[in-house]
Design a protein around this nucleic acid. Structure first.
Lengths: 327, 327
DNA sequence: AACGATTGCGCAAACGGTTGCGGGTAGAGC
DNA sequence: GCTCTACCCGCAACCGTTTGCGCAATCGTT
């Protein structure tokens, strides 16, 4: 069965397709009577507009691109939920692409987005990304872009992040308060902007505090566990643990709890989306930065840009508020 | 800056747009010389085809719809990764929609997919879904659909699942072997097909085994934890735990480990995507059903249907193999 | 040299919906 | 009876790409 088109409806009523189009779009140039009859028949026949045709004509696809470096367990699901909820409310659909932590694939993804004529793009960068040249394609097409979470310093960008430096510093303070002397920190990839900011915020807050800091880098729960096991095996017995993400938290806690030599009470402070900490049965302090809210905010910001129909030449970095939670 | 189109290229070479189109698509009707010159200039100018136009003309959008009941932590990320990897390899992009466990929203999602002229659809149903009528829209348009994980019994459907009955029975056996007498089972929503199958497989395998079975239903980690806490508070002290998903596993284990009265050694058997069990620092047996592979298989199956260009009137339920793992 | 086959390109329509413009009709006002 | 206006609707172009068909030029064959 073919799908019913505007032309089909036009034939039914013996009018011009343009009139049907206007009737369906509630254009004032169509008589009330005809308008009603058209709309009811359209419903009966289950008429659904062909967005492809409309998009093509209007040069608006009503499609949003979402590019993430990887599909992880904790942050990504929250993000996609937040983005999709807002996008749907505004009448947009989501094309989701992941870069597998590869710049090459990120570039591919941008091209895919361009070819699909997306109306706007949301991006979290890979750890390999050093500049934003590959987005020029979209910028020249005046397609608004909002970066979030994993971003680069760059003029004239729209972005949604948290105050990583400040949050890390706040977490660092808790180690001072609890009197920790040997702190293990599991950070993300050292190339990442957020890793650098969180580390420097952490170190800055403890710059005059006499504790031994040992940092390791890990991108996944598995890596975090291994790195932590190595650290423990090396004889370092931390009384404090700092992690930068839920993934690394999971791995590090597993390593510590699985440690055969046992371990004295260990104070934990971390960044988290808020779910995992409640299931680990250990006390900890965490900065909750909600992926859901970041996703919502980023999408809302993007939508503003789209409606404005002109890319702002100003930089706008939205810093989301975070909450410090003790459990 | 406007994007370069085929017409721009045609003007440059003083030829007809159709010739440019053929040159770019390596059509034999274009001379080698011209073909090369066109392709090199197209690269230089960074020409990217406007898929919207091509899709419109060809009635193929190269878009795949992916509808999931909810965006959870463990299963969904694996699924989307598997689907996207295959889809990308075949030249398709993904529109991701979640139904928030609501039939109404699922119906909306199907309509969105239809309007976007998707070439194929992958669906895991909500717990509210009782029939597949709302997919008729797409079926009439001859759009292939592949159901996965959460499906309904229905003739003439393509689906990818696991043998839930058998797998649950296998897990049940482990309780018999370890001699458990009081088994707590945390299952998903009772309306779900997989819940019913897994429960009946479980009960069947233990039909002649003298153990006390207590089942509770939970959709999330939080619910699972609460239900398990209630069960423990009621005086039931399980020596065996059976869960149906990673989410429920996480909640149930947290409840047991957080139990103030302590608990004797508890044998755990569950369904899992394979990641979480390694981080809980408890021994268990689990049936690994890889969301990644299910996603890949479902997408590959869908691609076959798309290429066949005619919807098969036969039912084809692919049962993925599972692995029993003890840790 | 005459003829058929092949090569290489142009022409134009089509996909479905949108929109500026124009025009016909009916009613109101003088 | 005339003009003016408001109301409704048709006409046709357009968005970028694809493709069947046609045709001229070239090539190969007898």
């Amino acid at each position: 069965m073919k799908r019913t088109t505007i032309k089909d409806l036009a034939r039914q009523f013996g009018v011009n397709p343009s009139t049907i189009s206007r009737a369906l779009n509630n254009h004032p140039d169509v008589g009330e009577d005809l308008k009603n009859r058209v709309q009811t028949l359209a419903n009966q026949l289950g008429y659904r507009p062909n967005r492809l045709a409309a998009s093509f004509r209007n040069r608006r696809s009503r499609l949003i691109g979402l590019i993430v470096p990887q599909v992880n367990m904790f942050f990504f699901p929250s993000i996609i939920k937040g983005v999709e909820d807002i996008a749907r409310a505004k009448g947009y659909s989501l094309i989701v692409l992941h870069s597998s932590d590869s710049l090459e694939r990120e570039i591919e993804n941008v091209q895919i987005c361009f070819e699909n004529n997306i109306d706007g793009l949301l991006v979290a960068l890979t750890r390999e990304t050093q500049n934003l040249e590959h987005f020029d394609l979209l910028r020249e097409a005046e397609t608004p872009i909002v970066f979030f979470d994993k971003i680069l310093e760059d003029p004239n960008q729209q972005a949604v992040v948290i105050d990583d430096f400040e949050a890390a510093a706040t977490l660092a303070q808790t180690f001072r308060e609890t009197g920790c002397k040997r702190i293990a920190g599991v950070l993300g990839d050292p190339n990442l902007n957020i890793t650098q900011k969180r580390r420097s915020g952490f170190e800055y807050a403890l710059r005059d505090y006499p504790a031994e800091l040992r940092f390791v880098n890990a991108d996944s729960a598995a890596q975090s566990r291994v790195k932590m096991q190595e650290l423990l095996a090396s004889g370092f017995a931390p009384d404090g643990l700092f992690t930068m993400s839920d993934e690394t938290l999971l791995g590090a806690v597993a390593a510590i709890e699985g440690n055969e030599n046992g371990l004295p009470k260990c104070h934990i402070a971390c960044f988290s989306d808020g779910l995992l900490p409640n299931y680990l049965n250990v006390h900890m302090t965490y900065v909750q930065h909600s992926g859901y809210e970041i996703g919502q905010t980023a999408m809302a910001l993007l939508h503003e840009q789209i409606c404005r129909e002109t890319v702002l030449p100003v930089s706008n970095i939205v810093q989301m508020p975070t909450t410090l939670i003790r459990i």
